[in-house]
Design a protein around this nucleic acid. Structure first.
Lengths: 259, 259
DNA sequence: ATAAAGAATATCATATTATGATATCTTGTC
DNA sequence: GACAAGATATCATAATATGATATTCTTTAT
């Protein structure tokens, strides 16, 4: 086939993974033909691959409709991930504490290419469904967490990504002007934290503090979402920011004994 | 190869999945040789498969140590799972509400073969790390959630699984006597909810209510964990049970208009 | 009820693709 | 500085995945 390169690459495995990744927010279950269409794979190949995935417990199959769905094994993989990421173990107690203290939604995010990914989420109060789910990815430039991470980098690097990384307009008020975003990042660099408004959801304010590694660069962030109606500038300043900053500091690995 | 059966089965894909599932609580990163040893696969095969997984973004590779780790893609799969499981969307608001009302840890679990699996978790207060992670599996007979689900089944079926399903002794006080477990399930059948003590963690009480489907059988449960020190029988009875039962009822799909 | 269309499942000959033995290069250890 | 353990690369071989086709099952329309 016209697949990838050389002998170190197993095409069948790659195709199988393609089937798994074909499922997303809107595509939650698929028939054989759906799968074939969506992945662009040949009908027979899809049949064999999907069957293998099913036998191996990676895809559930409705005996009635014969349609395939993600299986519990997908959650087990996430479970293994959590153990493999030292940050999660490190952060969890702090996040729980913060969540209780603030009474609002608290998130832990990491950088994943030019996106952020939610690694841990503690929802509080009514939230949009997608805002409660681990594994969600968002363009880094759109999110307070992404901006505050970038703000810890050298200026040239910051400017480069502000120009090149993707942006998505989620609400009518989402900032799409890259200059404005750059200013936001610069402000974050000054203050040590970032705030955003109406970026993902209208009337929602995001506040994020960086988790900084030994090299001075942030690779993760603690983030908090609150309603703009109940949380004005002052209240955020006094009741939110200090605690989030503390938590982020406490999570950072080299936090003990660096003065 | 001596692999599985027929022409509807793609061996290379199955082997690739084997690599993914080789990671768990204790095995969080592996070298090529580790992987080969652990999966029992040939050295060259492991090399090719792992490389493919890496190229496809399913395994991160430390450029220094050359060791492989689960990638963020594992969380993305979980994200897709959450969308595919209608129960999660249905339950989330209720769970958040319950978590805030009770101020204690709330879980949503489903049955997965003879185990339960945590599908959603809202930790409150100090928790054991593993007790905060989605995707964790536990033998159904050990857990309050498992027992209460089983309690909704016909008696013969109940008795059958009580005899045959696996049990694991987590604490010195974990119930390993199957007769005692059967009694616990019968009690749950009477009361409509289940409680356990010291099963997973010492001095911890679990309370679970079944989420019952149209056929009268539970396929999921709302579960709550509290400290035995702060929560005596009476307090649980009055301040916990009614709310958990309410939540479970509200989550059940056919909850509207069945009287 | 019956026909027709669409989808799932099964079969099979072919060569493309995965295989695993071996050889080379790299890294860490004593 | 020599050795060992591990990672990476190469290659001839056949076993495995391929995809065209045929059959069975399910749904929709007439």
């Amino acid at each position: 086939m016209k697949e990838k390169q050389n002998t170190l690459f197993v095409g069948s495995l790659a195709k199988g993974l393609k089937l798994l990744r074909a499922f997303d927010e809107t595509t939650t279950e698929m028939s054989l033909t759906d799968l074939a269409r969506r992945t662009g794979l040949d009908k027979s190949a899809t049949q064999r691959l999907a069957n293998t995935l099913h036998v191996e417990g990676m895809l559930d199959k409705d005996p009635e409709t014969k349609r395939f769905r993600p299986s519990h094994a997908w959650l087990e993989l996430a479970y293994a991930y959590f153990w493999s990421d030292p940050l999660v173990r490190q952060a969890m107690p702090q996040l729980i504490d913060l969540s209780q203290r603030l009474g609002s939604t608290v998130n832990l995010t990491e950088l994943s290419g030019d996106h952020i990914i939610y690694v841990s989420r503690l929802p509080n109060g009514i939230s949009q469904f997608s805002a409660t789910l681990v594994g969600r990815r968002l363009p880094a430039l759109n999110a307070s967490a992404g901006r505050v991470m970038i703000s810890t980098w050298p200026v040239e690097e910051r400017d480069r990504v502000v120009e090149s990384w993707p942006i998505h307009q989620f609400t009518p008020k989402t900032t799409i002007d890259r200059d404005v975003i750059r200013e936001g990042i610069e402000e974050a660099a000054q203050k040590g934290y970032a705030t955003t408004q109406n970026q993902m959801i209208l009337n929602q304010t995001g506040v994020a503090a960086p988790i900084i590694g030994p090299d001075g660069r942030a690779y993760a962030a603690v983030q908090c979402s609150v309603s703009s109606h109940h949380w004005g500038q002052d209240r955020i300043q006094e009741e939110l920011v200090p605690y989030i900053l503390d938590a982020a500091l406490a999570i950072a690995p080299q936090s003990r004994g660096v003065y």
